[in-house]
Design a binder for these strands. Structure first.
Lengths: 236, 236, 236, 236
DNA sequence: AATGAATGAGCTTTCATTCAT
DNA sequence: GATGAATGAAAGCTCATTCAT
């Protein structure tokens, strides 16, 4: 934005047009990938829906895979952005994580098949860790990692909890949750799943005292009682 | 060798051969699907690796999708079987779940992409919930569901915990865990991940200063206070 | 039949078995060709329906085309036989031709697609005129040709009528007639078509006097009247 | 040449090229179908002979059947057109029918096997009567039907003659006639066959001693008898 | 003689990519 | 830059025919 002042007028217009075309193609591809899947979407489909010719797609993207990459970048960018904004607006780690879960499910449930591309493309790529898809994924999950580290710091999780493992648990759970909701066609049950996950991660208010907590507390109470008794007897 | 005996042996040999062929094709397909993915694996690939002609594959399987189904069935059957056996040999819910996690990761980590077929085929199939792939998946996850219900019953999780959500959290976490280990090429770090997951699910030994821990700490503080008071009074 | 006395018992049994197999294959092929057409009928189909193995078909027939030839031979043999018998039982050329038409349509309408094989195979064959299919066809049409020659002889058709052309008209008409009845699904309207054809070939009783006959008769009557008048005048 | 003029010409050139391609494919297919038959002609054959790539065929036609449809449409259109024109240029029903027969044989004799496609495709198509192939066939035969009705009206055929049956007789005869001429390799004997058919349909000049002829002869005999009687009486 | 598993050539169709205009 | 017709490799699948048993 800051260096845009240098390039104006005609150039600007051309860039806008170019960007418009590029965006149009990405938008069309995104919608089509989500509807029909990556494999069943053809370049012709994308071109038609973008209002350009088949060949034009190749002016903006190297090949079909490149289009997919751009779609993913677009999707992840928006996701990362809005996740970060939402997290910034909250203070407690628990609230942040709960928001993140709700936000993630809400965004992903409608764009389910786009994320399939990650696995579709992931294996074509030799050096996945060096790829841009990996970088996008990482940027997004980093937002969570930061929240997770903070939560650990603040005692919400054991000090020795690995943020990476927490991340895998978090996103893995959400992915399966989304999948289940999709299959059962209960896309509105996000809230239910989010609460269930939170209870597992943080323990429900009343729960867990059962198995562990209550036992400990009871034994502590008993110990104190015994000590009190002993002191009493001592007095006499 | 009598004539009928010869026939029997011949028949058996033929049947063995047939079974051998079928198994060889499934094994080849399994390995190829895992290496190249379902879409990029061709019938010719499978035939070549099985040491048969292309057409032979179609003697044993209706079409490519049918091969994939057989591969999945084979994989899930073994997985379900050994998981059930392992679970039966243990008694405490926690031990069972821990075993399940370790077992799942160990089995899946080398056959990662085979499970992708589920989602690949899932979309092709009209009535996924009625399909055999769904049934296989369900049979396996049912083993876990039973363990999970038992664990809830025994107070390891809050009484109102949904076993379905627990299942999604469990398998989702493991899937992401496996993926991470694969990418990082640290396939031997299964143990680390399993412990991490267990700690989140059940709380670590020292754990949870959060919700539960703080309550305990409060009661401890109160008890200590009372003891100090009593000692004070005693002194007088 | 006359030389069968020489070969008896075991040989006979074997031959019967062989003939039975051969007939079974032909019968199965005939029925299948008629239902599904030549191309869509597979050797496996034929083998299954005959109760033999695929390979066995090749013990009796050189290849698929050879099976088709046998089916055609079988069909034409029966057709020729019954046509000849029917014709022999009648005396007037007109009755014979009418019978032939009715018989042909009746036999062919249910075995419509078998005759398609003639054109399907006809072109594969280099020397059609020397082929056995041609011979079969010829044997059948010869029955008609003889009837036709007789009819011409007896004045039912102009003396210079070509029997060959008559044959083409006859069978061509019937083939189209059958086709139309099949398409319109009015397989019971054979009689109607036969009468129509007879009327064209022989002229209906009342008809044709119209255009030609009546005119001639009228002019003849007029001529006679004029002659009578002249004679009358002469007398006086 | 102005820019727009250039564009027009360019567009036209491209369209011409496109039409040329389409025509080239139809021409190639037509010729190949006629030589090898529909089934034995492959898309590759057609593409090679048209000078295009296999895939190009699919730019102009949906599939192989669609190519066949276009070939048939092309063939029938020309046939119908020229038949109608020829018929319109003549007045008497007999002349028209004779022309039609001659014209049909001349056109069909070189493109014999193309018409086979009708029956080849006829079976593939579920609703043949609603298909475009049926419509083409019908459009052509309608030209004849109109002529036939007119002929019946004018007394050339018995008033109760069915035009449909007449049509089947007409085209069926011609088809067999063509077939015979092809087999005998006497493609120049069309005239002979046409005259033969005309004589059957309308009766030859001298013809038909049969039904009609005999009646005439009877009346003639009677007239002569009467004249002889009169002369006898005169002598006295 | 009978079997039927195995073969593999051959077919139709799709679609990412190119390139002359 | 933009076009879109043309390309042709590549895939899934069928089935007549063979041949070891």
């Amino acid at each position: 934005m800051s260096n845009s002042a240098a390039q104006i007028s005609q150039t600007q217009t051309r860039r806008q047009k170019v960007e418009h075309r590029e965006e149009a193609i990405i938008a069309a591809a995104s919608s089509l990938f989500n509807d029909k899947g990556y494999r069943k979407t053809t370049i012709s489909d994308i071109a038609r829906q973008s209002g350009v010719a088949d060949g034009t797609v190749y002016l903006y993207f190297k090949n079909k895979e490149d289009v997919a990459r751009a779609v993913l970048a677009d999707f992840y960018d928006g996701l990362t952005q809005s996740a970060q904004n939402g997290v910034d607006a909250l203070s407690s780690p628990r609230e942040r994580i709960e928001f993140f879960a709700r936000h993630h499910m809400g965004e992903v449930i409608g764009n389910w098949r786009i994320l399939e591309i990650v696995s579709t493309l992931g294996h074509t790529i030799d050096n996945y860790e060096g790829s841009d898809i990996y970088a996008l994924n990482r940027a997004y999950s980093t937002v969570f990692i930061r929240v997770a580290k903070d939560a650990i710091q603040q005692g919400e999780f054991a000090k020795d909890t690995s943020p990476t493992i927490l991340r895998d648990i978090f996103f893995g759970s959400l992915e399966y949750g989304v999948r289940t909701l999709m299959i059962k066609r209960q896309q509105n049950d996000i809230e239910n799943f989010v609460q269930g996950l939170m209870n597992i991660l943080f323990g429900s208010g009343q729960a867990r005292n059962g198995a562990v907590g209550n036992q400990l507390a009871d034994r502590l109470d008993q110990a104190v009682s015994r000590m009190e008794q002993m002191l009493d007897e001592n007095e006499t």
